[in-house]
Design a protein around this nucleic acid. Structure first.
Lengths: 263, 263
DNA sequence: GAGTGGTCTAGACCACCAC
DNA sequence: TGGTGGTCTAGACCACTCT
């Protein structure tokens, strides 16, 4: 059926390398050398058991290894397939430039449409509370201060790609639509600038790690796909931090692009 | 021995959730709620088998799940431990500013010493060859053009954290120490500027993924630790790309920090 | 219904570590 | 030497998908 001929090498009984790793090596080589392409189905567990003359768990261990490397995904009842790389969205370092903010649309929406994708936002929740210590520190808030918390999820062409939680000091948001689910045209940055907090610069701190089960669920992540955690702080012309945005992004959906001066 | 009392909940036989996932949930909760701290040992497989009354493979599946999430590491012959987060090196967006380049030291060395760490560089190799297509495109090179390829590995306090491969157009490197293992004080950027290629700006493209087995070996990565791939291109004042540096970094060792203008 | 992967059992032997 | 995790076997039953 699904191409037992893609594997050419035999096991080396003399090798110290465990059998399941040798099998994973064969399958990995078949993928990286192009004998198996994106979307191709791997031989079934039964076929591989026969091919190598080993028990089922040995085959499953080999496949689990490749799954953890992000090379294949197993689909219950269907088979194991070579993972296809989804199109990557490139986030340019000028994506929050003011000229992109004048259209009355949020950055995510503008960018997605320019790339020919369909953007969606869901799971919008807004509340007011005490911020976590890390956020309070970034916003330079005192002990009793509260923030407006805006959380939402972004999707591209139906696929969830990013969750985001924004924290805005409550005193900046009062009397504005910032504390409403729909903050109006241009998003919260437009509202902050209307309040006299003209934006000057942003900092972004980027880390990467494996997702929590909750994040994997919200972003429909396959095994072997890490996430970016990107924490952006917006400063006004007075140097005051006016928003912190804590985002978790499917790492296989993004390329982050930055420009650095040499002087 | 190692605290069977850290797990409080029992299995729910009525639940659809597989037993090994329920066990993983219990252990994960013990970690995230602070009943198990960084470096603590989990109960042994034998203890957990008795505690839950299940077979060994069920326990091992639970632990493998947590390993893949980066929460624990199993050490052969010793036990399973809650992963301790190593200190993170913060890469600031001004790390290639000219003022940091005047000391006669490379960026990695300067930064590490400022942070109180001991930097090392090893596995240095230099050669000349045709660049991969992706690199040739970034350097705007033609078909026959060759590049100097400089690869090396960086370590902090003895731990490997990053591999890097630099590509410099061969015509810029001829007659300079750029094609020698030791390029001299200030590194290759200093040499390029001496040749009249004053640096103007850099771009960095950042992605994240799970490591290949080769990368995991070179960086001594535990299961559940992704890597950053950071491709930096250096441009001179004439807008010509003069170097591309392709780096793979242990994601648990770095925070990438960038500054974005709002205008 | 046939074929796929997902879960689980009950053993065996081995390799590594600490005492 | 005893305890730890690593590999492997040979089964069983289940859940999902496609036809």
């Amino acid at each position: 059926m699904s191409g037992g001929e893609v594997i050419t090498a035999d096991l080396d009984p003399a090798s110290d390398r465990p059998v399941y790793k040798q099998i994973a090596d064969h399958l990995r080589a078949a993928i990286t050398r192009g004998r198996l392409h994106e979307g191709d189905q791997l031989p079934s567990e039964a076929e591989l058991m026969e091919r190598y003359g080993v028990a089922r768990m040995t085959i499953r261990n080999a496949i689990r290894l490749l799954e953890g490397e992000g090379l294949v995904t197993a689909e219950h009842g269907r088979g194991v397939y070579v993972r296809s790389r989804p199109p990557v969205k490139r986030l340019a370092s000028d994506r929050f430039a003011r000229r992109h903010r004048k259209e009355g649309k949020a950055a995510f929406t503008v960018e997605a449409e320019q790339a020919g994708s369909t953007p969606e936002v869901d799971l919008i929740r807004v509340s007011e509370s005490r911020p976590p210590a890390e956020i309070a520190g970034r916003l330079k808030l005192g002990d009793g201060d509260t923030v407006i918390v805006r959380s939402r999820r972004y999707l591209l062409d139906g696929r969830p790609v990013e969750t985001a939680v924004s924290y805005i000091p409550a005193d900046l948001a009062r009397g504005t639509p910032i504390s409403k689910p729909n903050p109006g045209p241009g998003g919260i940055y437009a509202r902050l600038e209307e309040q006299g907090h003209t934006l000057d610069r942003f900092t972004e701190d980027v880390t990467a790690r494996m997702p929590t089960p909750e994040e994997a669920r919200l972003l429909s992540l396959s095994p072997g796909v890490p996430v970016f955690r990107l924490v952006r702080t917006a400063y006004d012309l007075g140097g005051r931090p006016v928003e912190v945005c804590d985002t978790v992004m499917a790492a296989d959906a993004y390329m982050l692009s930055y420009e650095l001066p040499a002087h």
